[in-house]
Write a protein that binds this DNA or RNA. Structure first.
Lengths: 397, 397
DNA sequence: CGTCTCGATGACACCGGTGTCGACAACGCG
DNA sequence: CGCGTTGTCGACACCGGTGTCATCGAGACG
């Protein structure tokens, strides 16, 4: 026995016997433009586009947003067709598309992300997974991502994790599964964790890693060219006359630390200098290790006249060590850091450092995640800037 | 004419004529425990709870997660009943509840947040809206929120905004509407924006504001007691013998700045000192304004022996100014900051400062947002710690 | 022992989109 | 003119939960 929908279908068909589609479109369109949408207002409006507002206000008053059904009804098409318009399906008449788009604009209709998420079994959430690198950087990344996804249906959900926790992978798996993330962005240092990246991909989301070096899955990498940046900085020190240049490395096992080491060596050889193992001390990216490294480097008989530290915190530590030994900076020893964190600008003397273009990198990364067709399908490399501040001067022999 | 579901219903009824509910429960429960779930395995298992694993593995292999229908089928109840279990509905038999819970545990079933979001017209997303206070704080808040919502169905979505943008309110409205946020958390300084808080409430989400003072909607406030903290710090300076204490305020119009001023005055009077308007200079929370303020304060004939700065950045500025005038810190002038940002620990000398218990505050705030019944229904106040570092010493007359 | 109430549960529609598949019109072709 | 083909579009079921209301058995009660 035919139920209600079928009857409606019959009605539609009957209707269409007497009018071709084009005419239908035009008529609906005309009603819209002149603002007389009878089923809703029930009275005439003057020839402004006011009725759209009225409809809209009526909904607003009820705290309701227009749904796909409203658009379909007003356009005189099925909701599937509206769906096609939203998703820019190619197999759809141009006139129909334009008409529906006009209705959408008039109603200020926005698709419900939750319903789409349910139907598509995929959410429009970008996950930012990180393990506490410096706060400045995390915030910069968040802002960069927002730059890209603002005014889209995407949202950014963050998930700080602890990379030393044995359950980290499991936690992240549950998180991604539950929220049905669309894509995830990995920040250093956990961006170097291949198992994690693979897990995310297995869970069906695209992955973009921010890092400082070439990794296996190149297409989804956004990296700074640390090596080049450090090399340039060292070459600059050499130009200033420094020949004994100390180096504080990052912790072993960190790709970024390795890249900076390579850059340091490259910079030295560009300047015709040979690396001196006694002038290289390992640090762990923390303030205290910077103090220790500085003490060790500056204790020798022929201390370096400049010290490159693999991050700002350690550079601040080196500064402390220098001062503790009665040396003044930059007169006795020049110091360069890396990252341009807030510390760099606020210590005395202000620290020369290398700045990652974090926000721009995050913008690109978000683009790769959300609109892979518009972003380059190869790794993106960004060159860092050398921020020259008072902590470096010419070498006085 | 009866359709398929109705036939199924009849079958169920027939079945129940011959067995009372309790028995059904027991039987299903037994099958579960012994691990023989015939409809799925089709063969016996040894008396371990292995079959659950098998079922689970089968689903995993297909990349599918159990749905409410699976739970319902395995439990022999309707999905509505499962729904009641999930939502801890009170009108539901205890035995049934336990049985369903056992099945849920066995399947490791997790409700689909998107489907719930659609049905409830409300998402389980907590929005963190902030306008660039210091990065350390934002990150601390994010971690605190995560502490609370980890292992729940909630997720944290962040939204940095620009409070100077004319479209800020509109942007935030669209954001909340589109994502159907469950609740939002507002950080200073925009947590002081009453219009914004009202907008969020109008949009149907609960609001928790973090701040430094009592506001209008007290129940949803998490605040630090800046006034008390500053007062204590000043009293301590007085105990150390300082009588001429300088003050660098925050910018006008900021509640936090006002609170710190009040605390300063209170601290002075506790120590029997009178505020001296010449020892108070207005700053804007930025490094440069700290330099200017320091210069001004220290230029007089009788400069203060201690300076309280309303945040760390400005304190670092004061430090610069002191050094520029040939004064040493803390020998000539003691300095106290506020916030305990990364700068405080890494400048020389390490800065005595007041630390907000940010992470704990954020934990509480998230609790108020997500489980209002367990959190206190009144404003929560947190007392800040004074972190004593080398930048303060006794006053040498 | 019939009736009424009440606790516990299920059938069904619904939230707002999407995929599938079939219907229909216009068109080209033998 | 009958036929298949192509371009558009709609009916329907479905995603995985929730609200509403009806239903059923059991105990209270007259």
């Amino acid at each position: 026995m035919p139920n209600q929908p079928r009857a409606a279908a019959n009605a539609t068909q009957t209707f269409r016997i007497f009018s071709n589609r084009r005419a239908v479109c035009k008529r609906v369109f005309f009603r819209m433009v002149t603002g007389v949408i009878l089923p809703f207002t029930g009275r005439e409006g003057n020839p402004e586009n006011r009725s759209g507002r009225e409809v809209e206000e009526r909904r607003m008053a009820q705290g309701q947003k227009p749904t796909i059904n409203d658009v379909a009804r007003l356009s005189g098409v099925s909701k599937k067709t509206v769906s096609r318009v939203i998703n820019k399906s190619p197999l759809l008449n141009q006139a129909t598309r334009e008409m529906v788009e006009a209705v959408i604009a008039q109603l200020e209709y926005v698709p419900n992300p939750q319903a789409r998420a349910l139907a598509l079994r995929r959410n429009f959430l970008i996950g930012l997974i990180h393990d506490n690198p410096n706060a400045q950087m995390v915030l910069g990344v968040q802002e960069g991502i927002l730059d890209t996804i603002r005014n889209t249906e995407f949202a950014l959900v963050v998930r700080p994790v602890d990379r030393h926790s044995p359950t980290m992978l499991e936690d992240i798996r549950r998180f991604i599964e539950q929220q049905r993330l669309y894509g995830v962005m990995l920040l250093p240092p956990i961006s170097e964790n291949d198992a994690l990246a693979q897990l995310c991909r297995d869970l069906g989301c695209t992955v973009v890693r921010m890092g400082s070096a070439r990794l296996d899955d190149d297409a989804h990498l956004v990296a700074s060219n640390d090596q080049q940046a450090v090399s340039d900085a060292v070459a600059w020190l050499a130009e200033l006359g420094h020949t004994r240049i100390g180096f504080v490395t990052g912790p072993e096992g960190f790709r970024s630390a390795r890249e900076r080491e390579l850059g340091f060596t490259a910079g030295l050889s560009r300047a015709g200098l040979k690396p001196d193992p006694k002038l290289s001390v390992r640090g762990d990216y923390r303030f205290e290790s910077g103090i220790a490294a500085g003490k060790k480097l500056l204790a020798g008989k022929k201390p370096p006249t400049a010290i490159f530290s693999s991050n700002d915190e350690m550079a601040a530590g080196v500064l402390h060590a220098a001062r503790a030994q009665g040396l003044s900076v930059p007169e006795d020893v020049s110091i360069i850091g890396f990252d341009d964190t807030a510390i760099a600008a606020h210590i005395w003397p202000p620290l020369t450092t290398v700045r990652w273009p974090i926000r721009a990198m995050a913008r690109t990364a978000a683009l790769k995640l959300t609109r892979p067709e518009t972003a380059a399908s190869e790794p993106s490399f960004f060159l860092s800037d050398l921020v020259r501040r008072a902590s470096v001067i010419e070498c006085k022999p």
